[in-house]
Amino acid sequence: MASDLQTDISGGDAPRPGDAPGDVILRTEGLTKHYGGVHALVDCNFEIRRGEHVAIMGDNGAGKSTFVRQITAVEQRTSGRIWFNGDYVEFDGPLAAREAGIETVFQTLALADHLDVPDNLFLGREIRKFNLGPFSILDYKAMHAATRRGLEKTGVKIPNIRNTIQNMSGGQRQCVAIARTATFHSKLTIMDEPTAALGVQETAQVENIIRALKQQGEPLILISHNMRQVMDLCDRIVVWRRGRICANLRKEDTDGEDVVAYITGAKTQPEYASAA
């Protein structure tokens, strides 16, 4: 199953012979997802290298979140192939993707309303005092301490972390979801509109978290509608339109107006002409 990148990939998008074999952290080929008759994702070839911060942009319903759900195995793709960290992967579920090292802030945040902040931060990988399989004893103290450290990074103000998520503001929830990815070490971080509900200060803090990831050389996929943010934080912009990739732009070679032209469909890069 786990075949090597070099032998399996052919064609124009394949890593050039000069590349180090493990340079690409994530790569998709022909990734496609249909929901019944809805072709939400069509033939997407995407790649991100180590240390690279890539922005995904596109109109509402363009297929950005659908793309995230396929690579994190929240849903099973209709077709296409995925390589992660040098190996061909077929994750059977979100746990497998997470264990492989993909940390994700989902657009829906994936928080449990009736649980408090530490419970949500550690959902699915609780710190255990004694390991007794499913009946392992939780180490609340350690989880609370780590939660406080994680949240402080986001700059959010939460009066009481023992409060349940259902009693929190949209921005507080978003910060909890972001703190969750920031607390765990990962090989690839994905953030789906992480600052959509945040105030000015919290947005600045989250952008600082992203800059810190960059300094540590950790790759990031950032989905955002905020042009300034994307231009500030990312090396490359990939534009989605109606389920297809229509442009792959290096930040140095483009500007806001240009990107908008691709998003709206006024322009399409020649190599993606089939998307038009």
């Binding site: 945040l109 449990a112 649980l115 419970d119 959902l123 499913p134």
Partner: peptide
């Protein structure tokens, strides 16, 4: 109250999709 089993039981009832996305079986 004090075990992973209990926590996951509440999480699934609270938001099953979130529980799955968080990697709970």
């Amino acid at each position: 109250k004090y075990t992973v089993y209990g926590k996951h039981t509440y999480a699934i009832g609270s938001n099953e999709a979130a529980a799955r996305m968080s990697g709970i079986d």
